[in-house]
Design a protein around this nucleic acid. Structure first.
Lengths: 145, 145
DNA sequence: CTCGTTTAGGTCGCGCGCGATTAAATCGCA
DNA sequence: TGCGATTTAATCGCGCGCGACCTAAACGAG
């Protein structure tokens, strides 16, 4: 008679609920910028590399076109990104940043910095946790193939 | 000119993508049981305490009625849970487990055990990571008030 | 006992995520 | 060169999550 592991001791639930808590913490700050959490992640990637095909963004965020296409269209409608077909390869859609999105860049840096401080945990510990979470993600992705 | 933190070094994205990777890892196993990931978490809680009001489940999972009500109705329709009004306090909905859900219990234990092994990380490390993620979640929730 | 307040659920709308499928452009190889 | 295989987006359906709002039951001070 094997006992189920209690919810509180399950790593999958810890990740699930910590992720929700993180999104809730970002929410008020992103609301001021008029961004959703996934949109903020998209822009974070584009602030690093301001022009890239959708396929590359998909790889970076580990999201599929069925998630990104509608989201990017909403962002385009909101004047945050540009979308154009690559002349060399008409299959690809090249993404770009608008001036509006560029204007949000500094505010976004403040958001992350501010939130990292507010958490109130020592920076080295957070870095260590980051590494561990990334390592777990790698192991989990390895299971997919 | 503050540079944005790269996506790969952001703890929020690590959590976000690790959570997705975890759900993807569970997916094939849960598909066989006919469960979604959130439904699996609900049952995990009910396998521990087989009868409880919705409010208690909401607290345990940190979810609101606007998420739980439709999900529990789907689970009721699928013959997984029962829902009845408390005679003492007609506001409350008491949740219960069906025989069908009880029957899935052992399989669920196998799923978690199997997946924990497949990850291929030492058990102590996973426990340490669990604690760190839970600690982060606490700090994040503390920001909400 | 009464009436305002609190608590527990429910409804609606919207934005993800993703499985399944499709269309079009490009590639590769016979 | 021609044609099947691959790659890239897009579309559709559905199940979460959650903000905003609503209803009804229970509570509590006077």
């Amino acid at each position: 008679m094997t006992q189920p592991v209690p919810l509180k001791q399950m790593l999958c639930f810890a990740l699930y609920s910590a992720n929700h808590a993180m999104q809730a913490a970002y929410k008020p700050l992103l609301d001021e910028m008029g961004l959703t959490y996934p949109q903020f992640l998209v822009l974070t990637q584009l602030w690093e590399v301001p022009e890239m095909p959708m396929s590359r963004l998909a790889t970076a965020l580990q999201l599929e076109s069925n998630t990104l296409t509608p989201m990017l269209k909403r962002m385009e409608a909101a004047g945050l990104v540009t979308r154009r077909r690559d002349a060399q390869d008409e299959r690809q859609v090249i993404l770009g940043l608008t001036a509006k999105a560029e204007g949000l860049r500094q505010a976004a840096v403040q958001v992350t910095t501010c939130l990292t401080e507010e958490i109130g945990a020592p920076q080295p510990e957070l870095m260590a946790l980051l590494e561990d979470v990334v390592a777990l993600r790698s192991r989990l992705r390895a299971l997919q193939r």
